[in-house]
Design a binder for these strands. Structure first.
Lengths: 257, 257
DNA sequence: ACTCATTGCGTCAATATGACACAATGTAAT
DNA sequence: ATTACATTGTGTCATATTGACGCAATGAGT
């Protein structure tokens, strides 16, 4: 099936396949070159980017739909994927935008076409290991690539707001949940982990205090090896203690009360 | 318009008014007699209770829909109301349940009626001042009353799960946000505030340490008066310092990182 | 006047946190 | 080889926060 055929099928049959009014959008974050990155798609003819998103089959759980979208875009599945917010303002969805988008593709639809109706979208975010992802464009897009989190291009509709909200929630989670398992390779160094935290928090942390605190969580295991081929003193390699990591995920880190 | 007329109108016209596939459900919590309570509705003919919920008008933001539902059920509006989770499993919605419900009301609908389709619901929770609420049943229900949070009756569909999730999120929020302003009367005592925390957390707290910690947040003002007509030593009255309270809401309490 | 549960206000040790010092290490320049 | 230097591993110290608990004051009920 060519891309155009796929689009035709979607346009003509979509309303029979999918739950009306609802979509999912995924904020897929990866970490590379000591930078937090987000996976974006470029629409076929418009010079605008957007988050990977999709619709929910009529008998499909929303979480599975998000998983499916993620799989289609990154080749990854079964990863840490979490619903974080619903975006349900009536004006978030711009009829004109899609109408123009489709026209440029040579597709003319009436203004009451299903894809032009108001959509409420469920925002999901995923933390993935950058190196394992093979960005792959889908039916409606021509490019799929990583962008540095603070240097994203203009995004369609309210996708910038969705991205910002994902980061806000992520920062909150950092306060009571461990993070990083899905963002880092299996073996990593303390400075890499610290840089990840600093990037998410957008804030410098003291190297020594960071180490003390993170080790205090008891979710890391220091390996016997050090990182080779790196400038300056070779740092130790660490890996997550998965058992303790998952326990911490469930029970929280600090407690608070 | 009688209740039956209202139901007829809803059944016949609903699909033109509301966004398909979507609903909102509200977990409305109040505090009374040193107990956390939740507002539940009893369906008209079934001996089963449920959370107050409703649909979203086609041009209405979901937050406003939740506000509207809340207003209709409690007489309150403009209060702390927060989306906390989306429930989107296909099997959460039980066609048979509604079919039976309607039959007992003398309403026969075909199995493809709009109200029998799959619905994804957005869960909202609200913390309200118990004494200001006037529980009022709506079109589809015959009773509306407070229930102790740990002694709720059987709930329809997945409403028990929604309630539990709301409490889980609320407990998390307690770790980095102040709470209580909407749950307590304007003037309250320290033991009352502590009891609120203990109820939400389902855990005993040390009286003296609790006071020290909560005062440390700097969101309380101690009044010159003490609570009268109470057994034993008269405790001081406190009220929230709204300015600082709202600042703490925005900026968080502890920071963590 | 006495009892007693409860409140207000402490103390003290243990623990956590923030700021910073210093030696060890490995690459790169000389 | 030697040296320079950025970076890492480890530790210190003062301060802040936390958990556990003591004790006197209060005020309704007897």
């Amino acid at each position: 099936m060519t891309k155009n055929e796929a689009i035709s099928a979607l346009m003509n049959e979509g309303q029979h396949w999918f739950l009306p009014s609802l979509s999912v959008d995924c904020v897929i974050l990866g970490f590379h070159d000591n930078q937090l990155k987000v996976l974006l798609l470029k629409h076929r003819h418009l010079n605008i980017w957007g988050l990977p998103g999709g619709f929910i089959y009529k008998d499909e759980p929303a979480d599975i739909a998000a998983d499916r979208v993620l799989k289609e875009r990154t080749g990854l599945n079964k990863i840490f994927l979490q619903q974080f917010h619903v975006f349900a303002e009536p004006d978030r969805y711009n009829k004109e935008f899609h109408l123009n988008d489709l026209k440029k593709d040579g597709i003319d639809v009436s203004t009451d076409h299903w894809i032009l109706q108001r959509f409420v979208t469920i925002g999901y975010y995923a933390l993935v290991e950058y190196s394992k992802v093979s960005p792959a464009p889908d039916t409606l897009s021509e490019k799929c690539m990583w962008w540095e989190i603070h240097k994203t291009p203009a995004l369609m509709l309210d996708h910038k707001r969705i991205l910002d909200k994902a980061l806000e929630v992520l920062r909150m989670q950092l306060n009571f949940q461990p993070i990083g398992f899905n963002l880092l390779p299996e073996k990593f160094t303390m400075p890499e982990l610290q840089k990840l935290y600093e990037t998410i928090l957008d804030k410098k942390l003291d190297r020594r205090n960071f180490q003390r605190k993170i080790l205090g969580f008891q979710i890391l295991r220091r390996l016997a090896e050090t990182k080779k081929g790196v400038a300056h003193k070779a740092p130790y390699l660490y890996s997550f203690d998965l058992k303790k990591y998952h326990r911490a995920l469930k029970e929280g880190l600090n407690g608070g009360w």
